[in-house]
Computed example of a mutant assay.
Amino acid sequence: MQSRRLALVYLVLGLAGLALTWSQNLAYFGPAAAGGFADFLRGTVANPGARSIAFDILIVGWTASIWMVIEGRRRRMKFVWLYPVLGWTVAMAFAVPLFLAVRELALRTPPEIEGRPGLIDGLGLGLVSAFALVLLVLGVRAAGLI
Rank of each mutant, 00 (worst) to 15 (best):
residue 140 V to L: 15
residue 103 R to S: 09
residue 113 I to A: 13
residue 43 G to C: 12
residue 78 K to R: 15
residue 83 Y to G: 11
residue 59 I to D: 08
residue 115 G to T: 07
residue 52 S to D: 05
residue 95 A to G: 10
residue 38 A to K: 11
residue 83 Y to H: 11
residue 32 A to P: 05
residue 110 P to T: 09
residue 134 V to A: 14
residue 129 S to H: 08
residue 124 G to Q: 01
residue 42 R to Y: 11
residue 31 P to I: 05
residue 122 G to Y: 03
residue 127 L to N: 04
residue 25 N to V: 01
residue 88 W to Q: 14
residue 126 G to C: 01
residue 43 G to L: 14
residue 100 L to P: 01
residue 64 A to G: 08
residue 122 G to V: 05
residue 111 P to M: 06
residue 116 R to Q: 14
residue 31 P to A: 12
residue 18 L to W: 04
residue 67 W to H: 00
residue 49 G to M: 10
residue 84 P to L: 07
residue 63 T to M: 05
residue 114 E to I: 01
residue 100 L to F: 03
residue 103 R to Q: 08
residue 60 V to I: 12
residue 40 F to G: 01
residue 64 A to L: 09
residue 40 F to R: 07
residue 99 F to D: 01
residue 59 I to Q: 11
residue 122 G to S: 11
residue 56 D to S: 13
residue 132 A to F: 13
residue 49 G to E: 11
residue 95 A to E: 07
residue 125 L to G: 13
residue 67 W to A: 14
residue 84 P to N: 06
residue 68 M to Y: 02
residue 102 V to K: 06
residue 138 L to D: 07
residue 123 L to D: 06
residue 90 V to F: 09
residue 111 P to Y: 07
residue 33 A to Q: 09
residue 54 A to L: 07
residue 42 R to H: 14
residue 64 A to T: 10
residue 30 G to K: 06
residue 96 V to F: 09
residue 65 S to N: 12
residue 69 V to T: 07
residue 91 A to Y: 00
residue 76 R to H: 06
residue 73 R to A: 03
residue 41 L to C: 09
residue 19 A to C: 06
residue 138 L to K: 13
residue 31 P to R: 11
residue 57 I to A: 11
residue 79 F to T: 00
residue 53 I to F: 14
residue 124 G to T: 08
residue 120 I to E: 08
residue 132 A to E: 10
residue 25 N to C: 01
residue 20 L to K: 00
residue 84 P to D: 04
residue 136 L to V: 10
residue 29 F to T: 02
residue 58 L to K: 02
residue 68 M to F: 03
residue 110 P to R: 13
residue 123 L to A: 15
residue 40 F to V: 00
residue 87 G to D: 07
